[in-house]
Deep mutational scan, measured.
Amino acid sequence: AGSTTLRAVGKLQVRLATKTEPKKLEKYLQKLSALPMTADILAETGIRKTVKRLRKHQHVGDFARDLAARWKKLVLVD
C-alpha cells in the first residue's frame, strides 16, 4: 500500500501545484485526506509543504490548514 499511496500523493502533488480552479483543488485535497498517510510519505514527498502553501487560499484555505495540522500531528507521533 505504501508505494501505491506514494504514487497517488505524487500525482496529486503535481496537480495541486499546477491547477488553480477551486473545485479541482478541493477535490485533490479531499483525495489526499482519504489516503493512508505516514510520516515517511510526508517526508519523502514534501506534500505537507505543498498543502501548506494553500492555507491562505480563499476557497480551500481552511481545508488545507486542517489537513496540514493533522499531518503535523502524525509526524510528531512517529
Rank of each mutant, 00 (worst) to 15 (best):
A1G: 10
A1K: 07
A1D: 12
G2M: 12
S3F: 03
T5N: 06
T5E: 11
L6Q: 09
L6C: 06
L6M: 09
L6I: 10
R7F: 08
R7L: 14
R7S: 13
A8W: 14
A8T: 11
A8P: 04
V9S: 03
V9D: 03
V9C: 05
G10Y: 15
G10V: 14
G10A: 15
G10E: 14
K11F: 08
K11S: 14
K11V: 12
K11C: 12
K11Y: 10
L12C: 04
L12T: 02
L12W: 06
Q13H: 06
Q13Y: 05
Q13E: 05
V14N: 10
R15C: 15
R15Q: 15
L16M: 10
L16Q: 04
L16W: 03
A17F: 04
A17Q: 12
A17Y: 04
A17M: 13
T18N: 13
T18Q: 12
T18W: 13
K19M: 15
K19L: 15
T20H: 08
T20R: 06
T20W: 06
E21K: 06
P22N: 07
P22K: 04
P22S: 07
P22M: 04
K23M: 13
K24L: 14
K24W: 06
K24I: 13
K24R: 08
K24A: 12
K24F: 08
L25H: 00
L25M: 09
E26T: 03
E26C: 04
E26N: 07
K27A: 13
K27Q: 14
K27D: 11
K27V: 11
Y28I: 13
Y28D: 11
Y28F: 06
Y28R: 02
L29C: 05
L29Y: 01
L29M: 06
L32S: 01
L32W: 02
L32H: 05
S33M: 07
S33D: 11
S33C: 06
S33N: 10
A34D: 13
A34F: 06
A34S: 11
A34I: 10
L35Y: 03
L35W: 02
L35F: 05
L35E: 02
P36V: 09
M37I: 11
T38A: 02
T38S: 08
T38R: 03
T38G: 00
A39N: 09
A39I: 12
D40C: 15
I41S: 01
L42Q: 01
L42P: 00
A43T: 08
A43H: 09
E44W: 11
E44A: 08
T45E: 02
T45K: 04
G46Y: 00
G46H: 09
I47R: 01
I47A: 02
I47L: 06
R48L: 15
R48G: 12
R48M: 15
R48I: 15
K49I: 11
K49P: 04
K49H: 14
T50S: 06
T50A: 08
V51F: 01
V51Y: 00
K52N: 14
R53P: 01
L54H: 07
L54R: 03
L54K: 02
R55T: 14
R55Y: 14
R55I: 15
K56T: 14
K56Y: 14
K56C: 14
H57P: 02
H57D: 13
H57F: 09
H57M: 13
H57N: 11
H57K: 04
Q58F: 15
Q58D: 11
H59Y: 09
H59I: 13
H59P: 01
H59N: 08
H59Q: 11
H59V: 13
V60F: 06
V60G: 00
V60S: 02
G61L: 02
G61K: 06
G61N: 00
D62Y: 02
D62N: 07
D62C: 05
F63A: 04
F63Q: 10
F63W: 07
F63D: 05
A64T: 03
D66N: 11
D66A: 05
D66P: 00
D66K: 08
L67V: 04
L67Q: 04
A68S: 08
A68M: 08
A68D: 10
A68F: 05
A68Q: 01
A69H: 04
A69T: 10
A69Y: 03
A69K: 08
A69C: 06
R70M: 05
R70V: 04
R70K: 10
W71L: 08
W71H: 00
W71M: 09
W71D: 00
W71E: 00
K72F: 00
K72Y: 00
K73L: 05
L74P: 01
L74Q: 02
V75H: 08
V75C: 13
V75G: 09
L76A: 12
L76W: 09
V77R: 10
V77W: 09
D78H: 05
D78K: 10
